[in-house]
Simulated assay, not measured.
Amino acid sequence: MSATDPAGDGGVVGALEEHLLGEAPWLTQQQVAERAGVSLETANELWHLLGFAHVADDEAAFTSADVRALELTDDLIRLGILSHERQDGLVRTWGRSFARLADWQVALLASVAAEIGADPGEGMLAISDEALPRVEELQTYVWRRHLLSAGSRLLAEQATGPSSMLAVCFVDIVGYTSRSRTLTDRELVSWLESFETTVLGLTVDRGGRIIKNIGDELLIVADTPEAMADIALELTRRGADPDDPFPAVRAGIAYGEVVTRLGDVFGPVVNIAARLTSVARPNAVLVDLGAYEALTGRDHQDDDTDEDAPDQTGGYRLRRLRRISVKGYSRLKVWSLQPA
């Protein structure tokens, strides 16, 4: 490293920084706060909620774009859109979501640069001139489309308050740990991306939506238990096919009242679905009492019998299993779900 190249990268990071932010950083955090008309405490709080690291008081790490971001945030607060409670949740969600998106996009640009034989840093800088404006415009389009979809769901559910009846499912890759040890980092990423892409297509086609991925597990919701049952059964069917590259999976479905907040779901129904997945066998789908009653259209008699004769309804066959005890739930009623 040298005085003219403090990062030791030939100035690539500085050039990329100036290119993406519109100008080279020249403001300290105090100067940014003063220009935006907000307190330094508020500016630092928002910076940290977005997931960015602490910056020294005298470090010129900010640009006019940071001033504008604080001004816009302050406008939303004054308009009553962002109360302090909403501000924390929304900004934190932005930080997490865009951090993951940025990691993926940088990896994509770097791989494209490698394919054309360019240095990763200089290649990304060159490619960004052509790619980033289009990516930014496409992101805005996707965001607006999802706003429309979320708004439509909210209007349909507003009579029930912040909670709604949803089918919740966790899908877990069987043997993920052992398989991941045999793959390079690039192969593992490619494998997981292929898995998520396949699940996304199957889910959307059947009326469900993916909430998030947690390691090798996906959290999916659907408005009806029938839609969720179709999704889970198709995923396990593909996973059980030796000629299909899709990995073996297991799934747990629960149905009932779920609290929705900032694109995530919470409550006992979510917890039960996770617990069922953890005890399901490979290529199996387990459902809870709520899903069973919704799929069959009848109440289950509360008796001491551990196993019943299989119920067949519509396109499903449900066989009651022995009650299970999992973390937080003792003697949970559970059924195995199979195609009729």
Rank of each mutant, 00 (worst) to 15 (best):
Q158T: 11
Q158C: 15
A159T: 12
A159W: 07
T160G: 15
T160V: 14
P162L: 13
P162Q: 12
P162D: 10
P162W: 13
S163C: 11
S163P: 07
S163N: 10
S163I: 04
S163L: 05
S164G: 09
M165C: 12
L166K: 01
A167H: 05
A167W: 01
V168A: 00
C169G: 00
F170I: 01
F170G: 04
V171W: 02
V171K: 02
V171Y: 00
V171C: 03
V171T: 06
D172P: 07
I173C: 04
I173H: 02
I173S: 09
I173V: 14
I173G: 04
V174D: 13
V174I: 08
G175D: 01
G175M: 00
Y176N: 03
T177K: 02
T177W: 07
S178P: 07
R179E: 12
S180Y: 02
S180A: 08
S180H: 01
T182Y: 10
T182S: 15
T182H: 13
T182M: 15
L183G: 10
L183F: 15
L183M: 15
T184V: 00
T184W: 06
T184Y: 03
D185W: 10
D185P: 15
D185T: 14
E187H: 09
L188M: 03
L188H: 00
L188E: 01
S190L: 13
S190A: 15
W191L: 11
W191D: 11
L192S: 09
L192W: 04
L192G: 07
E193P: 12
F195W: 05
F195T: 05
F195K: 00
F195R: 01
F195E: 05
E196R: 12
E196L: 12
T197N: 13
T197W: 10
T197M: 12
T197D: 15
L202I: 15
L202H: 15
L202K: 11
L202C: 14
T203S: 10
T203I: 09
T203E: 08
V204P: 03
V204G: 01
V204L: 15
V204R: 12
D205F: 11
D205P: 07
R206P: 07
R206N: 09
R206I: 02
G207L: 00
G208H: 06
G208I: 03
G208K: 05
G208R: 01
R209Q: 12
R209W: 06
R209Y: 06
I210C: 13
I211R: 07
K212Q: 11
K212W: 07
K212E: 11
N213K: 15
N213C: 13
N213V: 14
G215S: 01
G215V: 00
G215C: 01
D216M: 05
E217F: 06
L218N: 01
L218E: 04
L219K: 00
I220M: 00
I220N: 04
V221L: 02
V221D: 04
V221G: 05
V221I: 09
A222D: 07
D223E: 14
D223C: 09
T224H: 05
P225E: 14
P225T: 05
E226C: 09
E226H: 14
A227T: 11
A227Y: 12
A229E: 01
A229I: 06
D230R: 06
D230N: 08
D230E: 11
D230C: 11
I231D: 02
I231Q: 04
I231R: 02
I231Y: 05
I231G: 00
A232G: 09
A232L: 09
A232Q: 08
L233M: 05
L233D: 00
E234Y: 09
E234I: 05
E234A: 13
